[in-house]
Design a protein around this nucleic acid. Structure first.
Length: 120
RNA sequence: GAAGUCGGCCGGACGAUCGCGGCCCCCGCGUGCGGGGGCGGAGGAAAGUCCGGGCUCCGCAGGGCAGGGUGCCAGGUAACGCCUGGGGGGCGUGAGCCCACGGAAAGUGCCACAGAAAACAAACCGCCCAAGUCGCCGCGAGGCGAACGGCAAGGGUGAAAAGGUGCGGUAAGAGCGCACCGCGGCGCUGGCAACAGUCGCCGGCACGGAAAACCCCACCCGGAGCAAGACCAAAUAGGGGAGCGCCAGCGUGUGGCCCGCACGGCUCCCGGGUAGGUCGCUACAGGCGUCCGGUGACGGGCGUCGCAGAUGAAUGAUCGUCCUCGACAGAACCCGGCUUACAGGCCGACUUCCUCC
């Protein structure tokens, strides 16, 4: 389909070991909303893992909303992300921020991390 | 029309584009993936995890102790700490609302501050000198005074001071006596019962509060939980399953302990079980409609519908239009309750007041 913005299932971090690998050796990019970790894989496409803790918000509704927002951003940029594994963590206070601002912030993280991983 | 009480219901809508996970059908092949089509996809509280049950495993849940829960009566229910109806007490003009509502004459302990005294009563102020006692006066009869004497009516303290009011009574008083009220016991009547009664008899009254202090009484409760549990199965360690049998000791075993119970021996069989995966996993004490029984909770009959099943965890993002500008908040095995949160709105029944006819 248009833009090839599909996947999801295969584009997710599923195993505990996969998460651990990213946490162990990763490029970091952070701001006041998110902390994003990235690490190259050899699959030829990007994968996303979410680690939205209760510290970000104690309400399940809010955590779900954040996850959906991050997935949506990831889905739209998927084609340009290459073979990287990402883990996104949210910081407290996210709930009050407007969506467009969060999308912009995530875009910055994606492109920054893609550049850094390409260099190394 | 205004104020209020109770019960029930809804919880942004529509469209476009891009997406997510589930099931069914068709096609393709490399048999779990791709393509196409269709159907559905969070809540009234999904929440807190406070009760109750189903389900699963464990010794198939036996006896006792300990522990926990419940607590007016009757009914409903799978069950309950829930619901309905009734009784009692309290609040409100009223519709209605609220109540851990068994036992304090089984025992132990407690009742702050204040107060003399907080439960075998007692006596600070006060009241009284009739008898007895003491002091003073008098020849004497007697008089006056008093507390180490009598009293508990009045004052004062307190949430509460040992029935209330009146009359009699008395030195002053007191259920000391009487009347009425209250209280307790027994009976009778009504009610399944809690309980009630203008009822009768008896008792002058022996009954302060608190059981959300211990406790007593009655009834109930085996434990753990879907990370239950079953199956497939890399790695690693050596054990696991079935059948037959057992006197005692000892050991082992999900329950806090004891008893009881099972296992240990022999024979036969062979895989084991972490990562990962599959099942459990959604169909039901089910929803809706209707009729019947019941004051009601609810029960029964008939018809009809199929209503989320994820597992790093699916219901979203963007844009447009509209309106009364959108609260609290996200399923995780499933139900029944309770409790708590909640913008705004709708419907019905009833109460009080005002106005009009």
């Amino acid at each position: 389909m248009a833009g090839g913005a599909r996947f999801e299932r295969r584009a997710r971090l599923v195993r505990k070991a996969d998460f651990q690998a990213v946490f162990d050796r990763a490029e970091k990019s952070g701001d006041r909303y998110f902390t994003v970790l990235a690490r190259p894989n050899d699959l030829g496409h990007a994968r996303l893992g979410l680690a939205i803790s209760k510290r970000a918000s104690k309400l399940a509704v809010v955590r779900n909303t954040i996850k959906r927002l991050v997935r949506e951003s990831f889905r739209q940029r998927l084609a340009g992300l290459g073979g990287l594994d990402f883990v996104v963590m949210a910081r407290p206070g996210l709930a009050e921020v407007e969506h467009p601002a969060l999308f912009e912030a995530l875009d910055r993280h994606w492109s920054r991390l893609v550049k850094r991983c390409a260099r190394s």
